[in-house]
Amino acid sequence: MEIGKRIADIILMPIVAFVIGLFMVLMLRKIAAKLQRRVGPPFFQPLIDIIKFYSKTTQVSHGLLHDIGIIMAVGGYLAAESLLPVPGMDGLSDKGGIITLTYFLMIPSLGLALGVGQCANPNGSIGISRALTAMLAYDIPFVIVIFGVAWHYGTTDLSEMISLQQAQGWGAFEMPLLALAGLFALQGMMGKQPFEIYVAPAEIATGPMVEMGGKYMGGLFVMQCFQLYTAGVLYTTLFLGGGTHWLDFLIKIFAVVAIPMMIAFTFPRYRTEDMLRLMWKWPVLAGLLGIAFVMY
């Protein structure tokens, strides 16, 4: 791949991710509204919220690390998007595969955790401790899924997985159990109900977000766009054959994000230990069974 194309990809991919992410946030809020028989927010609401937060006159900072945390949270995702191949753009996907991406996605979380810690609010620290525990819960089925998929395709390179799937059929049909386990993990990864104990607004005052206002909160809203986009694209890449062109790709990623959202707004919340039990039981079992089918 020539260098010019690569640079253009690296610049374009986060922008595309952000725009699509905005629409995903809109979809999320619309789904919530429809399930609750409301009208829901106007079309540009996610963007308007972000502009509003960034244009606050007074911005409350708890020190340098608070700032750096938000910079890391957004910057980490900006970089991570270039590892996720989309139709026509491969970016850096050949420089680090699925394992690298998984660990790259921890950089924003680490940044957020540092920033929240600096806020000196115990609600935030409790939120982070619960979020890390949640990560421990959903990452175990998730790595099982990663192993199964990577073993099945014999590669960790995401763009190679896509081309293999387009040749021999979607991963979801070849590895249904892993796809199911992946969907479970996805629900936890998005941090939506029933696995949003780390936010728990009425209990720990939105946990990590407790001291975030102005552009700090705006940064987190931007991060949420990337988060939804990443989750959707990752699952599509692993199981739904990526995309040949943008139309079917968009349909797939929006569908992938819509499923957990519909589940989310019809469920109440699990406690941390119940989430651990659930995540370590059914998706892990399904995943291990799936690996057994894939390998033998």
Partner: peptide, 21 residues
């Protein structure tokens, strides 16, 4: 909630003063 739905005007409840307008 569903009867009058403030969210269609972009109004949402928030939890802490830092996040609120």
């Amino acid at each position: 909630t569903s009867r009058f739905d403030m969210e269609r005007l972009g109004i949402q409840p928030m939890v802490t003063p830092r996040q609120a307008d």
